[in-house]
Design a protein around this nucleic acid. Structure first.
Lengths: 138, 138
DNA sequence: CTTGATTTGTACGTATGTATT
DNA sequence: AAATACATACGTACAAATCAA
């Protein structure tokens, strides 16, 4: 149970704690967090505050939540390699909800627009991409 | 005022409408959306549903919200140009809340990690960056 | 500069729907 | 079929930032 110290909202304080626990390996990718009910009881907050915490971590791409299942710590996905051709540009942004659905992306996954020199635009989830140069070492 | 047609949540339906209105220029960058109270009355939903709609658009980077002010339609920021050196890699992801604060990023702005071949890592907000190759035309 | 009105942010409570186990 | 668990959606109250008088 926390108080409102430091002017930081409760849901951010709890998010800090969970983020640190995940970083330290208390929860590893593929593992599930405890149920909401358990988490909120442990931290002494309401359901809404707990859900806001989880929403924050989901936005960050740290966890994935699905109906009927406890929150899952997200694994580092295998990245697809994309080669930037000469003159191509790359823009990062968040997808709109329709784009997210169309591309099959989870919440918290940014989107990369690769504007190729031939005018074509390739759009992919940013967590699936590793960009290298055509003459890159990788 | 909508019903639950198509199985799509209310807040997504309303977000679709607002997104389209912004796309069509009914609200231009720098302009403010109507107050929450007005929006929720117009769409016939509760405060929570309206706030969820705005949260979605904020995550997408389409609007920015601040306490005491109506939601602002975000302008396309001037992009900083970053040159990828040979062997460098680029990863896109969402910043954690502390990173967001440290980098002074708004919610909804992804982050780009540029792993340079010399081992240094440059971290910047994705909406501030345009990536080009050293021999690029741009 | 201070006051007050407006507006969003945070937080709690409750009920129902729906997917998973 | 039943229990578990997250998603959606309504309602309420107070705090804090902004802006105008």
């Amino acid at each position: 149970m926390r108080k409102r110290g430091g002017g930081q909202p409760l849901y951010e304080q709890i998010a800090d704690t969970l983020r640190e626990q995940i970083r330290q390996g208390e929860y590893v990718p593929g593992q599930r967090l405890p149920p909401e009910a358990e988490l909120l009881a442990h931290h002494g907050v309401s359901l809404m505050t707990m859900r806001r915490t989880l929403a924050l971590l989901r936005e960050e791409g740290l966890i994935a939540t699905r109906r009927g299942m406890q929150a899952l710590v997200r694994a580092q996905p295998v990245r697809r390699r994309v080669t930037l051709s000469a003159g191509s540009r790359l823009i990062g942004r968040m997808p709109s909800a329709p784009e997210r659905q169309q591309l099959g992306l989870e919440r918290g996954v940014p989107l990369l627009e690769i504007h190729c020199s031939d005018g074509t635009i390739e759009v992919v989830g940013a967590d699936q991409v590793e960009v290298v140069q055509p003459f890159g070492t990788g």
